[in-house]
Simulated scan of single mutants.
Amino acid sequence: MDPVTDEQFDAIVQEALDDVPAELMAMLDNVAFFVEDEPSADDPDLLGIYEGTPLTERGEWWGQGSLPDRITLFRGPLTRMCADAEELREEIAVTVVHEIAHHFGIEEETLHDLGWG
């Protein structure tokens, strides 16, 4: 894929987020989306990551002063694996759904079994 500017990538991310069903996005609770250039050196091919407390693990006092959960997309691995902007948009949407599933408490193994891994 030809290099994309930060602005072009952000626009593709917005398009991909618009592709995620609105019902699914409405179910998110205190989640912020971020874009970073590269993941840690421990997992250089990581496309995205969910960091936070899944809904299934929140108690009645959760959220009192808590920062939002984070879904981070990694520009480098995503653009390297995609041939064009359309494929990139689709891969970002799949990655977002995958990370949202973690927010709902769905484990990696289950996601793989469902074809989202």
Rank of each mutant, 00 (worst) to 15 (best):
L78D: 04
V35C: 08
G63R: 12
F9W: 12
G52N: 00
D42C: 06
M27H: 08
E60V: 09
L47M: 14
A16W: 01
Q14L: 12
T56P: 00
F34K: 13
L67E: 15
E38F: 06
F33N: 08
F9C: 14
Y50F: 10
A85C: 15
Q8Y: 12
E91K: 10
A93S: 09
G63F: 12
D6I: 09
A22P: 01
S66N: 13
D10G: 08
F33W: 14
C82N: 11
A32Q: 15
L73W: 08
L17R: 10
G63V: 15
D45W: 05
T5E: 09
E38C: 06
T56A: 01
W61Y: 15
M27L: 08
T56Q: 00
A93M: 08
D42W: 10
R70M: 04
E60F: 07
T53Y: 04
R89T: 10
S66T: 12
E60L: 08
R89Y: 13
W61H: 15
L67A: 13
I12F: 13
G65A: 09
R80G: 09
D43R: 13
W61R: 14
D6V: 08
F9T: 07
A22K: 02
T95Y: 03
F74P: 01
P77I: 11
M81T: 11
V94C: 13
T72P: 06
T5H: 11
I92L: 12
D45C: 07
T95E: 03
P21R: 09
R89A: 10
G76S: 14
S66Q: 15
R80H: 11
R80I: 07
P77H: 05
E51A: 03
M25Y: 03
Y50T: 00
I92F: 05
E7Y: 07
I12G: 11
G48W: 02
M25Q: 08
E15V: 13
V94S: 11
L47E: 04
F34Y: 15
E86H: 13
L55G: 01
I71K: 01
V35D: 03
L88V: 14
D45S: 06
A41W: 08
I71F: 04
E91Q: 12
V31L: 01
G76Q: 09
E86P: 13
A22T: 03
L24Q: 11
E51Q: 09
L73S: 11
A16T: 04
L24N: 03
D45E: 12
P21F: 02
F9Y: 15
I71W: 01
D69T: 01
